[in-house]
Design a protein around this nucleic acid. Sequence first.
DNA 1: ACCTGAACACCGTTCAAGT
DNA 2: ACCTGAACACCGTTCAAGT
Lengths: 244, 244
Amino acid sequence: MAANDFEPDDHASPRRDAGVWLRATPSRKRRSPPLSTERIIAAAVELLDTDGAAQLTMRRLASQLQVSATALYWHVQTKDDVLDLALDHIFGDVAIPPETPDWRDDAAELIRRWRTAMLDHPWAPGLIGRPMLGPNVLARTEFLQEALARSGLSGVDLEVATHALANYVIGAAATQAAWRTVDSARGHDHARDGLEQLKQQYPTLSASGHLDPPHRDDSVVFDRGLDAVLNGVTATGLRSGRRS
Amino acid sequence: MAANDFEPDDHASPRRDAGVWLRATPSRKRRSPPLSTERIIAAAVELLDTDGAAQLTMRRLASQLQVSATALYWHVQTKDDVLDLALDHIFGDVAIPPETPDWRDDAAELIRRWRTAMLDHPWAPGLIGRPMLGPNVLARTEFLQEALARSGLSGVDLEVATHALANYVIGAAATQAAWRTVDSARGHDHARDGLEQLKQQYPTLSASGHLDPPHRDDSVVFDRGLDAVLNGVTATGLRSGRRS
DNA sequence: ACCTGAACACCGTTCAAGT
DNA sequence: ACCTGAACACCGTTCAAGT
């Protein structure tokens, strides 16, 4: 009840206080560096990595930062903001490779790194569905497009090529990360039976491994597909296309 | 207060009741066809189409079906089930084209219809991130793979081709539907300014139209990309690839 | 300027109970 | 077999108030 918990509130004396030196914490207790958008994003990515997108909550995020939930709204307008920022953040991990004389190597390498970044954060593909216009994404897209331009593409051809490659990675990462979420969700035993049934119903698909969870040579399939798309999308490839 | 609202509760008489004939509704009032997984899915798709994924709620879904929220759980295990089912459902709209002698036309046509189905339901790309193993998706994937097999592909080559095309549509639909959600969210005036800034920062990207919201010739860009991927992925294309 | 606390209007899901 | 109602343990977000 009393304002001061240290002593019974019998009689007020100036000597009651032991002085600054014995006070456990400075009165302005700073538990941690001040909140900032950057710290929020970092904590969000950590939470997403460990617990998945469904577990990311403003309240959990706040408690991880030792802050009241409503404090976040000083730095961020909405939960979707946090998600957009977290998504763009992980593309910072996609190192932009040093430009080599070979535009094709440059483009391929960027795409490959793009893919591994998404697979490192399996919640990321699930966040696609909102425009990705963050600085990290745009910088990498710009690098990709510049590499493709060096191949001689321009105008609509360049646009087509950039989109084709970007769409390919995004799709590939999405379908692959999908599997990752499912067996972490311990569909293990029960899902196995369901898969067996599916395989019997779709023999063609199953023979080609389309119904199998991801395995070791997924990235070789990805690399070969990437190669094929690069071939098809390249200046000569576009010009030799069957259709208009 | 009284159990019977028709008459003041003065004295109970057997003649108070006018008989079956005058009762407005049969005592077992069946307000609508009985609930079923199918009806739930249909209502879910409708709600998703009109209000978007964020507005899909078990409670809203139930009230649309004139049923208590908890009734849904008799037919469905979880909300995610509803989403998975709704997503697979819309791929039923992707008519499987009649097989023509031209495997390439068959494959291309399926992919194009796949894309429009997703664009008709812009919430769909946002649901990717969980494995799509519904019957509608699998039937279409099987058709696609069969068409590609007719081109002479088999084994890993076939797997690569199927994945490449599927990834391409998924990615394309996702990025394009993303824009659709943003301007329906009335970012109109405010987002416009932000876009102008972005265009100045990324002149290369912006010159190629990568920063513009979807416009009329998006589907020609898509079609040309599809053509390019088909070229690259085709048996001859794969064999002539630069790399291993 | 930055953060807290209480409050509002919701959520998904479980479970006993009704018919 | 199928549905309701109450209840539980949460949500995102607003806003006045504190420092």
